[in-house]
Design a binder for these strands. Sequence first.
DNA 1: ATGTGC
Length: 474
Amino acid sequence: MQPNLNRLLRALAREGLEVTYDGHLYTVRLLGDANAPPAEVLLPPDLPVEGKAFRQLAHLAALKHPTGGAVLRVRATPDFHPGDSGVAIGSVLHTRGLVVPGAVGTDINCGMRLHVADIGVEAFLSRRDAFVERMKGHYFFGTRDVSMSSRAAEALLRDGIPGWLLESMEQPLGCAAKADLAQLDKESTRIHLGGALEGEPSWAPSGLVKPGVVRDAGLATIGGGNHFVEVQRVEAVTDRTRAWEWGVREGQLAFMIHSGSRDVGKHVGMAWQDRARAAWPAGAPYPDSGILPLGEPALVAEYLRAEATAANYAFLNRLLLAELLRLTLRELFGDVEAPLVYDVPHNITLPYEGGWLARKGACPAEAEQPVIIPGSMGAASYLMVGCGDAAALASASHGAGRARSRFDMSRGGADRREEALGLTGVDCITLRQERRVEEAPAAYKPIGPVVASQVEAGIVREVARMAPLLTFKA
DNA sequence: ATGTGC
């Protein structure tokens, strides 16, 4: 246990926050609010905790809406750390009669996508430079064409990937024209919920809903922060049966994509955090946290449609990031299939037990479903299978979790030597060198204990482990 | 999260 933990807990108690710890689960509650459910955080000893994140979690659990909506449970994953918008990353919020736009935030349907390919590591590394140059062109210099018909754009926003595919078969443009649409269609069953949510195109920025051909500059771009595209090697398979079923074998290359809905999620998320504030009933006291729920059923439904619109866009963003990769592999290595293993959102509101479950940086870990947990750049990533653990609200961590903020890393006086940052031997392709510092392994918790604690708790089981070869960061 | 800003 960290030596200053007791001091931190006493300090939090003085400001009205009760935090207890039993060695693997923290319980957090606001003193004097007996009606609010306690919030739980699964976190092994020795991993850092911050008071700010506990504070955010307790306030989230205490949210109510004057219409009667309430928070049923709050749970946080081991990659739990403070969030900028007032809600901690790693928060899982089960509600009934209310939803919280701020509990998903602006990076709607941020998520993970994993492909594997039967290409040997030596063969890949022998063409590494050619691969990097082509991918830099696509991801950083705009040598990609992601145009589509306005019908395809509208179908995407309204119906998700199946809608986009159907219209792209009618009029294939851009990436779709070069893609194997039959394979994409077959693979859509490997996207969480089929990549098909019920959206409403008018919630998207206007550039996406216009007559003629839509050319969107944000599609098939990685985005900043912790987002990345990584080439990995499958270094260990622990569950042979399941790995085989999912098409994963030791020694294969893996391609892991972490990205979200870019400007579309920002547009929707910001609009609805404002809307929630404007819709707060006159006279009702504002929640201390400044995080405002929506309670009126019509508003809740409208928000969920808006969120789904951005989520549909994010599914296509990850699909196209992968498609550019797959086209490049075919160019360099011949007819490789590079099938999709799974695509899963970790920033989204979905129906759960008669209410809603908002995950902010938490991967669904439903029974028998694939769970993708990336380590920091330079560390291993994991393909897991969910156990549907109700105590954990069927959710796992979405990564290792930050241990130090971006500011702390880049301007907070961190030791900038490569060894101290953990960057020795890391092959990171970026146009912004400061990104390597902000996102260095030293900024993150160790993935090993984060994953192990969730296996021990019965939330996930390991299927395969992947080691990084090279990482693209915008 | 954002071609940002602490």
